[in-house]
Deep mutational scan, measured.
Amino acid sequence: MEVRTIKVFTTVDNINLHTQVVDMSMTYGQQFGPTYLDGADVTKIKPHNSHEGKTFYVLPNDDTLRVEAFEYYHTTDPSFLGRYMSALNHTKKWKYPQVNGLTSIKWADNNCYLATALLTLQQIELKFNPPALQDAYYRARAGEAANFCALILAYCNKTVGELGDVRETMSYLFQHANLDSCKRVLNVVCKTCGQQQTTLKGVEAVMYMGTLSYEQFKKGVQIPCTCGKQATKYLVQQESPFVMMSAPPAQYELKHGTFTCASEYTGNYQCGHYKHITSKETLYCIDGALLTKSSEYKGPITDVFYKENSYTTTIK
């Protein structure tokens, strides 16, 4: 009895394709271990004539594949690729409408935090270190965002349907971005203890939790000093293409032309909904596939993004 075979390709990165001759009487799992086709788990399936010449994702289970996976995804987590594939199996079914010149995501599976993050990423200057993220990001900007969303979920250790947080998501993504040249110098002034300067680099240099107003941050924000008295913390120097200011959701007025974009969060910790506000020729609110415009805006804002380049204080 002759062994019926077909020729397929296996890959971990969709760049390096490895030619395989597979036995049609055995499952993919018996031949390769966990195997995925377009995100779908085909591990328990036997090869079919229609699979001839198709590319299958496999887990990096030998040295060659491990090197290829690390170079593309910059992670050695053995569960990463499987999590990416199972997320992709959902995100490829989502709709990605162009809204006001940006790629958004039609609401499904509690994905409003991903839509808000995706919209924000198209408006701030950011370059990702893992080629996987950078490639998928370019495709997302062009309207094909399924891979990018699935990668975000995998890097953030999230599953489809789980509630997510924009600030946490951005923080994970910033860790995989090139923020080497970003720098922030802060000064804390206390009447009792004097003053202390701190220099922050990388992710810490672009994120701040405690106030939404970048102007206020430049002037000074009140913080408790270690001595128990009130101290003032203010920005001395900022070198970065953008800054992200966050605070627990509270009524906040966004003035046209003073910011790049913002995240609105309605609801409580267990259950809520994100919308995205962007400042173009007027203010726009993007909620999944829905767009509304207004000249002014007041609502429960939790993150505001500002364009920056270089700032030095005039406070002496």
Score class of each variant (00 low, 15 high):
G257F: 03
A154L: 01
Q122S: 00
L163F: 15
F148A: 00
T314H: 14
Y306L: 05
K201W: 15
L65D: 08
S310L: 14
C193F: 03
F9R: 14
F9V: 12
L235W: 07
A205Y: 02
G299K: 03
Y284K: 04
A132F: 00
N89A: 11
I152T: 11
Y36L: 02
V21P: 10
V42M: 12
F148G: 00
T43H: 08
C156T: 13
T75Q: 11
Y311W: 14
C225V: 04
G267K: 11
V8M: 09
T169N: 03
K219Y: 06
Y138M: 14
S213E: 08
G220D: 06
C285E: 10
A140H: 00
C156E: 02
K280E: 15
D109E: 11
I6G: 02
T169L: 15
V203Q: 13
G101C: 02
L173E: 00
Y36M: 03
D109Y: 00
H276P: 07
V304S: 05
G299M: 06
L173I: 10
H256L: 15
A145C: 12
E296N: 13
F242P: 09
A132D: 00
E308A: 09
Y284G: 06
I15G: 04
A154V: 01
H74Q: 13
S240D: 05
V304D: 05
C261K: 05
G228C: 08
K183L: 10
Y73E: 01
Q251D: 15
G267N: 15
E68R: 10
P47V: 03
G272D: 03
Q98L: 15
Q197P: 08
H90W: 06
V236Q: 13
T314F: 13
P97F: 08
T19I: 13
M207Y: 06
V304I: 14
A142T: 15
H48S: 11
L235A: 05
S213Y: 04
V12C: 07
K275I: 03
G267M: 09
K255A: 07
S240L: 03
L235R: 01
R83Q: 07
T76S: 12
D287K: 06
T64E: 13
G39Q: 02
T302Q: 07
W94R: 00
V3S: 13
G29I: 02
T278I: 10
Y72N: 03
A231G: 05
E125V: 06
H90R: 14
R66I: 13
P249H: 04
S86G: 13
R83M: 03
A247H: 07
V221S: 06
T211C: 14
K229G: 14
S25L: 14
C225D: 06
C112D: 03
V3A: 13
T278Q: 10
R83A: 08
L59A: 07
T169C: 09
D38N: 12
P34Q: 09
T91V: 08
E71G: 15
T75L: 01
T75D: 04
I286G: 05
Q134H: 05
T116F: 04
K229N: 15
L88C: 10
E264V: 08
F305S: 07
K106I: 07
Y214P: 06
D77T: 00
V203M: 15
L163P: 15
T103N: 02
H273C: 07
A87S: 06
A231C: 12
V58Y: 02
M207Q: 09
E71F: 03
L153E: 03
T192P: 01
G161L: 00
G288M: 01
S294E: 12
T5Q: 12
P47K: 01
A117E: 05
V22D: 03
Y172L: 12
P60K: 06
F9H: 15
F174E: 00
D165Y: 11
T258W: 00
K275D: 03
T258E: 11
E71H: 10
I152Q: 03
D13C: 01
N187P: 06
H276K: 06
L17H: 11
C149D: 05
Q20N: 08
A108F: 00
Q175F: 04
Q197F: 07
S246M: 02
I286W: 04
T266N: 08
Y138H: 14
D38M: 10
